[in-house]
Design a protein around this nucleic acid. Structure first.
Length: 124
DNA sequence: GGGCTGACCTACT
DNA sequence: CAGTAGGCCAGCC
């Protein structure tokens, strides 16, 4: 009965909702890369799906999409777009610093966040 | 049914 | 560090 093409792992709609939950679960002052979000959302997904999921997300959702950036630590939307200013501004508001238009994934990344919580910003 | 696009990633040169 | 190439798969024409 179970159609292998309709399981949870292959259901794009379900996977998309997982992405939204993952993004909503990003702590304050932290950022995640599309690849990381895709992995946390579950199998059957890739970085490209994340981008679509964020765009398809409803506006009343208040999804912190600004905490999602590309693997290079840079904003993946053209600086000419309003979204760029929004993302950069919001991140700076949360304490994220931009260097050369890039962020330090080693510090503001999810792994970095856990490290800081465990080590407590030990002299750097 | 075929072809192009896209808030991307990884590997190689 | 910069540029190129392949992979990924849903959405649209």
């Amino acid at each position: 009965m179970e159609d292998p093409s309709k399981t949870e792992t292959t259901d794009f709609g379900t996977w998309v909702k997982n992405v939204w939950q993952v993004v909503e679960g990003i702590p304050h002052g932290c950022v995640l890369t599309y690849g990381e979000v895709a992995r946390l959302a579950g199998p059957g997904g890739s970085a490209r799906r994340v981008s679509q999921a964020l765009r398809r997300a409803p506006r009343g959702m208040k999804l912190p999409w600004h905490r999602v950036i590309n693997s290079q630590g840079k904003i993946s939307i053209p600086a000419d777009s309003e979204g760029y200013a929004q993302q950069k501004s919001r991140l700076e508001e949360e304490g994220v610093v931009f260097l050369n238009g890039k962020t330090d994934l080693q510090k503001f990344g999810y792994a970095g966040a856990l490290d800081r919580l465990l080590w407590g910003e030990e002299s750097g």
